[in-house]
Amino acid sequence: MNKRQFLKGMILFIPAGQLLETLARQAEAAGPGKPKPAKPDAEPDMGLGDYQPADHWYGMGIEIDKCIGCNRCAEACKAENDVPQEPFFFRTWVERYRVMHDGEARVECISVNPQQRGELQEDRDVLRTFFVPKLCNQCAHPPCVQVCPVGATFSTRDGVVLIDKDRCIGCRYCIQACPYGARYFDHRTSTADKCTFCYHRITRGLLPACVEVCPTQARIFGDLRSKASRLVRFQRMNKIGVLKPALNTEPKVYYAQLDGEVR
């Protein structure tokens, strides 16, 4: 019977030391001697000041016909968000599609090879060709959030999917569950990472970095709660498509002039 106890020990007591240490750290992070919220329903301080998350519901519009494939968005994203520079880690990237006369679609990621941008010559075999920026779709019904075993990734009230890097155990189930390849594993922190819509910018009233630098306004950021927002106007003026609608993830990145070949 000591095996029984031993096993329980394995599972419960041995990690207890680490547990206490982590708890102490987390308690410290929560503020020294921080009193529990008076009412259990009270929102804990999120460092947002006057900003009210519940008043917003963010999304992004992408006008494919305006994208010139300059890759400034992907570069700005890496600069703004400390994304590893190697071409295997992207919060946003740009794809170039070539649909050939025989119906075959050829795709390349110009963010992986930026020297490829601005060098595609005329080709009689190409039926149509265009660029498509991609990023986390900030789904309203996100499969990555559903599968996280410890709830380390979550949707904020204003509709942004974030990762709690102090809680992420690095199992990478979320990366497997994302149909859009929008997540990557950050080896520096051993946690998953993804686009946050530049949450630190939008809560200060700035635009996400990729939207800020887009020279042709192919990216439009806005609040779906506000009828006057540019995004709502964009949705009114364009026929809209989202990526992989059949998966019922309810993406909040809306594409205008979305081609059927784009997956």
């Binding site: 987390q26 992070a29 929560a30 929102e43 804990p44 301080d45 999120m46 460092g47 947002l48 700005a76 600069a79 703004e80 709830g151 979550f154 904020t156 974030l162 990762i163 709690d164 890097k165 102090d166 809680r167 946050t196 949450y199 630190h200 910018r201 809560t203 200060r204 700035l206 970095a209 800020e212 630098v213």
Partner: peptide
Amino acid sequence: KLHRANAVKREVARPVSF
């Protein structure tokens, strides 16, 4: 709730480059 509030707090406290 507390964990998420802390995560949001860390996120919004990040410095801006642009």
